[in-house]
């Protein structure tokens, strides 16, 4: 499923503070985990990437239950979208031909494995800026479904 241009723009606001999202994952026995994520990008129109910066419970969940939901937290401006689909974490050390949902981990890490270099977080206010960006990998979602989280139409399928 391809994201619309409006969705891609909303997720990648380069140099303007970026989008802020929540990522919900879940253990295999149903315990959800919902965390805010700051470093977000789009890959080849149909995947959403998030820098993995010590997302410990997220990683544990994805290793046993590889699915997630991404909801836009800020700026919303009517972009009340929830993206759901198979999700994993790419990290250095995977076999060179490792693929997930049609994407090669090596290719993704080559482009987004060093987020601080590609998109330095200079616009993040000092009181919430990590002292040093330590990235362990890339959280990687293939978007399969998009639904509205707007209150009066929550759950309505958009794409």
């Amino acid at each position: 499923m391809k994201l619309t241009d409006e969705m891609k723009d909303a997720l990648m606001i380069i140099g303007a503070g970026g989008a802020v999202v929540h990522l919900t994952t879940c253990s295999a026995d149903g315990k959800p985990n919902t965390v805010g994520e700051r470093f977000v990008a789009v890959w080849k129109d149909e995947y959403i990437l998030i820098a993995d910066m010590f997302a410990q419970k997220t990683k544990k969940n994805l290793m046993e239950n590889p699915i997630g939901v991404i909801t836009i937290a800020h700026p919303v401006k009517g972009r009340t979208w929830a993206f759901r689909g198979p999700t994993t974490i790419f990290q250095e050390g995977l076999p060179p031909d490792f693929e997930f949902q049609g994407a090669n981990a090596k290719d993704v890490l080559a482009e987004w494995g060093n987020w601080a270099e590609k998109e330095p977080p200079s616009e993040v206010p000092p009181d919430i800026r990590p002292p040093r960006l330590v990235q362990r990998g890339v959280i990687f979602m293939k978007v399969d479904e998009i639904y509205s989280y707007k209150a009066d139409e929550a759950g309505r399928k958009i794409l």
């Binding site: 879940c26 253990s27 239950n65 939901v69 929830a82 929550a154």
Partner: peptide
């Protein structure tokens, strides 16, 4: 209970 997530806002 099988771990399929849904988020509301």
């Amino acid at each position: 209970k099988k771990g399929f997530p849904t988020t509301i806002v």
